[in-house]
């Protein structure tokens, strides 16, 4: 237990010095800035390309367009960037043998897994919250309308889905012996969840529901309570995966 803060510090130093956190933060901030920008420019771009030939009534962009861009960017590109940045977090330690020195000094293996998970969750939370606030600010400035009143309701499920997703990445990274294997596992899991989502009966329980309903939540067409089953499953599965990571790591040869 006493070694947990030590290892957490090591993880944070690692992500800082290997530029991983910097990349994550900069990339999600870029997405955050692009969301209101694209929403704002879309009509102009359409006008420039078709305007002269086609008499289209192009609707004026609203805050809905801005937030739609944000959630589209985050749930597709954002998640993918997270996966490739952190897919090697455990597999690299295992393939390089960097844990041998520490474990033979008495470091409990569960501390390795838990400190990595906490560090991932912290990075995701900080980066996502920062980009959320940026999009919020610009959206409020450029699109001062009342069409997206429930901003936090859209944000919370995405944050929670991230926690689940990070547990998938960590488990995959521990399971595989190289970072590509971990990435493959993550892609398979998410692909599987999207397949399950084809069945209507399962949709409500699917963690994917946490990144599929954000706009409905923001506009007030849905409430967080309706996502309850999906949230519960995501958190439960995340904990199971974390426990699984510890068990896997305990059996690994270093």
């Amino acid at each position: 237990m006493a070694t947990l803060p030590t290892m957490l510090k090591k993880e944070l130093l690692e992500t800082w010095r290997t530029y991983r956190f910097l990349i994550l933060a900069v990339v999600v901030l870029i997405f955050a800035l692009m969301s209101p920008l694209i929403a704002k420019l879309t009509p102009d771009i359409m006008k420039m390309s078709f305007g002269k030939t086609l008499q289209l009534a192009i609707p004026k962009p609203t805050s809905i367009d801005s937030w739609t861009q944000f959630y589209k960017n985050m749930t597709q590109m954002g998640i993918f960037v997270v996966a490739i940045l952190f897919g090697g977090t455990m597999s690299q330690e295992l393939s390089r043998g960097t844990l041998v020195n520490l474990v033979t000094k008495g470091l409990p293996r569960w501390v390795v897994a838990v400190s990595k998970y906490i560090s991932l969750v912290v990075q995701w939370s900080v980066a996502l919250t920062a980009s959320f606030l940026v999009t919020w600010g610009y959206t409020a400035y450029y699109f001062p309308d009342a069409k997206t009143p429930y901003i936090w309701q859209g944000f919370v499920p995405l944050l929670l889905f991230g926690f689940f997703f990070l547990a998938v990445i960590l488990f995959g990274s521990t399971l595989a012996n190289n970072s590509y294997g971990g990435l493959l596992f993550t892609i398979l899991v998410v692909g599987g969840l999207y397949l399950v989502n084809l069945f209507k009966a399962a949709q409500n329980y699917n963690p994917i529901s946490l990144i599929g309903n954000n706009m409905a939540l923001v506009q007030g067409h849905k409430t967080l309570g309706e996502l309850g089953p999906g949230i519960a499953i995501a958190i439960g599965a995340g904990l199971v995966l974390l426990a699984g990571t510890v068990i896997l790591l305990n059996r690994k040869k270093l």
């Binding site: 910097l22 990349i23 900069v26 901030l29 870029i30 800035l33 692009m34 920008l37 704002k40 400035y141």
Partner: peptide
């Protein structure tokens, strides 16, 4: 859109 372009270009430059 200068308020967006400036930080956007700055971030891309940092990266």
């Amino acid at each position: 859109n200068l308020p967006i372009f400036i930080p956007l270009i700055l971030l891309e430059l940092i990266l």
